[in-house]
Design a protein around this nucleic acid. Structure first.
Lengths: 239, 239
DNA sequence: CGACTTCTTGAGGAACGTCAACCGCAGTGG
DNA sequence: CCACTGCGGTTGACGTTCCTCAAGAAGTCG
């Protein structure tokens, strides 16, 4: 892992997307002054409490004592990551799932609490609420859905990621930003099961795997229905 | 559901606990002025974006299309509930799990965004971060743990709730604040399975069910080990 | 006492995790 | 050029687990 200290204002250092490109210049400089950029490869861990994903994908990774691996949350380009209230031991570590750049903001924690910079505080508050909603959504996905339903759900989640470009999005093509094994650890199934699920979806002509990391949603209404709980376990009772 | 409008400052209306009793009087009055108190019974829904639990237990409830019920998050006395960024949770509702009082703050949303009241914004930000960490924790619990591990984990979660009084906490007694069926919907198992799990834990002398809603943690180290992933599925390979 | 709710117990089967082997591909080195 | 290796992903066989369904206990209220 390579650290690069910012010694001056470098406006290009914030992701060029909402909400970061809406900040006024003083706020931007305030953020960047006490920050540094970390360049990460897959499986690199980074010890930070606060930061912004510039490129790539990060995740909160937890290892259970028997070796099972869990991805509690995923972060894409532009996401603010805030682990400040997370007891380190229980929460796990921040890990890169692919080559990434992470802007560490640990130094500006104080700057945010002070009322001086209201626009920054507002942006951060918005991100917090957004991620809270997403995390609850994810929890709801995990609670009682079948692997098939979880898989359909995560497809729609990836569709909303910035990795899917607009052209593809219009064609209902979804860019899969992470590896199968990571998806599996994120939705709580084994890679083998996930593989079988994808084949099943293909067999029912609901999706089409164009490339390894690009999937066409062929029948969105049916997929939506499945993602929303339309494929419970089979009852033993004959219908 | 009964609504009561506050027509004047009523300092007793905020929960008498951290962080609410730390607010200065102007902030408190600012919160209360545009708020109203909702009195709820079990299964009562309430349509609100922002509020504080005064007494009781609320939850974010989502119903899957086939009738499965999911509790995505639990809230106890003193918790701030913020659903402002929840789009998909639109299908999820706030529901009371027992007779409760909920202080609805929808009216003060604007007051918080404005920088005028920094202390309120700070308190809310802290609550957001706290709940975000909890929600990720819960997600990690749900991803790949066995029902036994989930049950052990949720016991420790309830131990941290204010419902467990200090006397009991010292004796490793945990107050179970909600019904079995709600716990089951929260950790994603069937009530039948949960019942069997509890009996199993009792059989191994790890817990003792003193009353229906009070459980003694008899062997905390072992329970901690289980909650942290010490009871994976059995391998088919002979040890 | 019945009517209701909540929780428990029991039996049976589908599902998903476990393990093992295989495939395709990329990089490496002889 | 081909063997070798490593990695990510897939396929297949098998067995435990936990869901499903149904019925019984236990507690509460009229």
């Amino acid at each position: 892992m390579e650290k690069r200290q910012h010694d001056g204002p470098d406006l290009a250092a914030l992701p060029n997307r909402l909400p970061w490109n809406q900040l006024d210049e003083p706020s931007t400089r305030g953020l960047l002054n006490a920050s540094y950029l970390a360049t990460l490869n897959r499986h690199d861990h980074i010890d930070a409490e606060l930061g912004i994903v510039r490129v790539g994908v990060l995740a909160i990774e937890r290892a259970l004592s028997d070796g099972r691996r869990v991805l509690a949350d995923l972060f894409h380009e532009g996401d603010l990551i805030d682990l400040s209230q997370s007891k380190r031991v229980r929460e796990g570590q921040l890990v890169a799932l692919k080559p990434s750049e992470f802007l560490v903001l640990d130094g500006v924690r104080s700057e945010i609490s002070t009322v001086g910079n209201a626009s920054i505080a507002q942006v951060i508050m918005l991100q917090l609420r957004h991620h809270l909603a997403r995390s609850r959504d994810h929890a709801a996905d995990l609670v009682s859905k079948t692997p098939l339903e979880k898989a359909a759900s995560v497809l729609f989640e990836f569709q909303r990621w910035p990795d899917t470009n607009d052209d593809d999005r219009q064609r209902n093509m979804v860019k899969i930003p992470i590896q199968r094994v990571d998806i599996a650890d994120y939705i709580g199934v084994k890679p083998e099961t996930l593989s079988r699920i994808v084949r099943q979806l293909e067999g029912e002509f609901l999706v089409k795997v164009v490339e390894q990391d690009r999937i066409l949603l062929a029948d969105i209404p049916s997929l939506r229905r499945i993602a929303n709980g339309g494929r419970p376990r089979c009852s033993t009772k004959k219908a």
